[in-house]
Amino acid sequence: MIPESSPEPSLRERKKRRTRGQLRDAAIRLASEHGPGGVTVQDICREVGVSPRTFFNYFDCKEDAFFVWDQQLTRMMLAQLARRPLDEPPMASLRAAIEEVLPAAGADENWPARRRLLAEHPELVGRLAHSLRTSEDLTAAELGRRLGVPAESLHPMLLAGAAMTALRTTLVTWAPRTGVKGLQRHLREAFAEIEAGLPGPS
């Protein structure tokens, strides 16, 4: 069996996470001050002291820096998913893989500012939906590989869609005061609701 917890991240990985966090902090701060349309990638990079090339190592576009879940976190989640035992139920594997990555999302302190941005600038919601759909497609591909079926077939797509819905709902309804442990617990509750067939409010 593969252990539930992953080893401590390397120094290189910690530096990457720190840079990613600094870029995200700067993006949200500038967007809160000037509006998303009043901020450029160059502005964000100038605040952090890195090049645009470095920015695009972490984010596909400026808007992606406003969201807590991005493609780097998706890659981390997929790496965790690939490590799960093949005989484990797919939903259990998905929950465990996402739960491992949540600390990197839950440590972000910009939740109030991010929620204000999404509420005040609804044009960002479309980009968020696109980002999550990309994550969903990549997850379905990994599930298809594990299950030995085409990624575009019904089962892996339903599993990926359910997992991304659980993740999105968890992030939206989580109370940041409960910390990362609370976030992980909230995710487990969301998956439990889905696996039970959504019987009713808990």
Rank of each mutant, 00 (worst) to 15 (best):
F55K: 10
G38S: 10
H34W: 13
E47T: 03
E63N: 08
F55W: 00
R29F: 08
D64S: 07
T54M: 10
E47N: 06
T40E: 06
H34M: 14
A65N: 04
G35Y: 09
V68T: 12
G37N: 14
N57K: 13
V68A: 11
V41F: 06
E33I: 00
P52A: 02
E33Y: 09
F56D: 08
V68Q: 13
E47S: 15
C45F: 06
F55M: 00
D64N: 07
R53N: 07
Q71S: 05
C61S: 15
D64P: 08
T40M: 02
V39N: 12
A31W: 05
R29K: 10
F55I: 01
V68M: 12
I44G: 02
D64M: 03
C45Y: 04
P36W: 15
K62R: 15
F66Y: 12
P52W: 00
G38Q: 10
V41L: 12
P52K: 08
E47A: 13
A31K: 00
I28V: 14
D43I: 09
D60E: 14
K62G: 08
R46T: 15
C61R: 15
F66G: 01
T54E: 12
L30C: 02
T40D: 01
R46H: 11
Q42R: 15
D60R: 11
D43T: 08
H34C: 11
F56V: 01
G49C: 06
H34F: 13
Q42A: 11
F56P: 02
W69H: 05
V39E: 05
D70F: 03
E33Q: 11
D43N: 03
Q71F: 04
V50E: 04
G37K: 12
Q71G: 01
F59P: 00
V41W: 08
P36C: 11
T54K: 08
R46A: 14
F67E: 00
F66A: 06
V39I: 13
C45V: 03
G49M: 03
F66S: 02
F55G: 04
V50M: 04
I28N: 04
I28P: 12
A65P: 04
K62E: 08
D70M: 03
G49I: 03
Q71E: 10
W69S: 02
